[in-house]
Design a protein around this nucleic acid. Structure first.
Length: 458
RNA sequence: GCGCCGUUGGUGAAGUGGUUAACACGCUGGUUUGUGGCACCAGUAUGCAUGAGUUCGAUCCUCAUACGACGCCCCA
């Protein structure tokens, strides 16, 4: 049997409905903030990610899906969304648009060549947003609050916002050397991994799991202590704005993010629910003021955020958040003989185009089995087509909840269902229905109007 | 890249070196309820991830591969 590639997922059935719902909330919330949807290619030239993310990191050297196309060009399936957005911003000269900053959001698949584990796949779907062209701490606060509000709109309660600042380049470099100086005399006390981290990426020692209880870590220098005045003041402003927005957060000096391009604000939002595996971070982001210039554009201050939808769905399930997922159908059409089947075929189309969710029988099942099928589909109403009824221009409708049945005029079917289901499928209001009833009483039968009362007005 | 565990039907799964692979649910058909949901009857894996090996014989032992789960590294 042919199997799906390692670390990939088929999403279907109820889970797919959850995904669609989550994405609809994302779209709606982004629109409220006036972030515009952007779609960039799923693959880009390999160079974009090398320049953007850093040549020497593990990420680029062994965790991307690289391929050479038929023209010999080196390509990479995008491992994240930011680089493509920045490339697009630069390539399309969006920096020339008077409407700054440019606020965009995306939602798409990303690819990372990793060993799958809980909350980590090779193909993942991430949504995210970027604000390009503003260095105002306002945008930092807005991006963080927007992320939080999307989770809130979905009904997620147990989330925790961790923020930190790396400061500007000057602050960051000072901090880095201070860390190395601090740990170097005690290198023997660190775990094996941290010993190699010391020169490579000393900031990551801070969130090492093995050494998390080590006193050394607790007393290590904090980024905040090495900020210059500008960076410190900027961070205070971000926190102030978050307070105004009533976004709860915790300043966590151990949030460092992996990549070099970050500066100033960095943040992560984690799901605070039991049952998550080793990866409970729903999303994260930060400010990257030098990425655009790195890839050949103008120096452009930017901030962004990205979040995995798979983990988000997992969090919703673990929190047992009630989602308004519609799994019912309005009507199931049942039939037995060929004439009835033909009418079902026709009627299903009519009703669907009128706005009802309609399903019917396709596999020639017995009437009994069709009843079961209707139940399985959670049909609110069942229509049992019967040749004799149809000859009389009538149809039998069953309320699948109360089990009550009635035979109504075929002409009245849409109005009947509309009234029962209150879907607004027809434009007829209750008042109008009432007036038709009055009309029916008074009409002598040749007014020339067609109506839903089942009587012929010819 | 490393480690640990796993892979039996539509589903949950039991099980054994030797031709009936339990049981349950589901599903399909039938009987009976005026048309299901209850009840009863019947049907439902020539196959136990794939390949190779050991053996007289393997789903059960060995090895490899794939995939899954979890963790490490890394984390965009």
């Amino acid at each position: 049997m042919i199997q799906k590639p390692k670390g990939c997922n088929d999403i279907y059935g109820r889970e797919a409905k959850i995904w669609k719902y989550v994405e609809s909330i994302i779209d709606a919330t982004m629109e409220k903030y006036n972030y515009n949807y952007i779609r960039t290619p799923i693959f880009e030239s390999t160079e974009l990610f090398h320049r953007g993310i850093g040549e020497s990191t593990d990420i680029v050297t062994k965790e991307t899906y690289d391929f050479v196309d038929r023209g010999g060009r080196k390509m990479t399936l995008r491992p994240e969304g930011t680089a493509g957005v920045c490339r697009s911003y630069v390539e399309n000269k969006m920096y020339g648009d008077p409407n700054q900053p440019v606020k965009v959001y995306y939602n798409g698949t990303m690819y990372r060549y990793e060993r799958p584990q809980s909350g980590r796949d090779r193909e993942l779907t991430q949504f995210g947003m970027e604000v390009l062209g503003s260095d105002d701490p306002f945008t930092d606060a807005e991006v963080i609050s927007l992320a939080v509000n999307i989770y809130k709109m979905l009904g997620l309660k147990e989330i925790k916002v961790n923020i930190n600042t790396l400061g500007d380049k000057e602050s960051r470099d000072m901090y880095r050397s201070a860390l190395i100086d601090y740990f170097k005399p005690h290198i023997e006390e660190l775990c094996e991994d941290c010993q190699t981290r010391l020169e490579k990426n000393p900031l990551r020692i801070l969130d090492c799991k093995v050494d998390s209880d080590n006193e050394l870590l607790k007393n290590a220098p904090k980024t905040i202590d090495y900020l210059n005045d500008f960076s410190r003041e900027r961070f205070e402003q971000v926190k102030d704005y978050l307070d105004i927005l009533q976004i709860k957060y915790e300043v966590n000096p151990n949030i460092v993010r992996g990549l070099d391009y970050y500066n100033h604000t960095v943040f992560e939002i984690e799901a605070n629910v039991k049952g998550f595996g080793a990866n409970n971070v729903l999303g994260g982001g930060g400010r990257y003021n030098h990425l655009c210039s790195e890839i050949g554009g103008p120096e452009t201050p930017c901030i962004g955020f990205a979040s995995g939808i798979g983990r988000l769905v997992m969090a919703l399930e673990l929190e047992e958040v009630k989602l308004p997922i519609v799994e019912d159908i309005d009507l199931f059409l049942m039939y037995v003989n060929e004439d009835e089947k033909k009418y079902a075929l026709y009627l299903a189309q009519e009703l669907r185009m009128s706005g009802f969710i309609v399903d019917t029988e396709y596999t020639g099942r017995s009437l009994k089995a069709q009843f079961k099928q209707a139940d399985r589909l959670h049909a609110k109403y069942v229509a049992i087509l019967n040749s004799e009824d149809l000859d009389n221009n009538e149809i039998k409708i069953r309320d699948n909840k109360t089990k009550e049945e009635e035979i109504i005029s075929l002409d009245a079917l849409i109005y009947y269902l509309d009234e029962k289901l209150n879907t607004g499928a027809s434009d007829v209001t209750e008042d109008e229905i009432y007036s038709w009833e009055e009309h029916e009483e008074n009409c002598d039968g040749d007014c020339g109007e067609s109506c839903h009362c089942g009587h012929h007005h010819e």
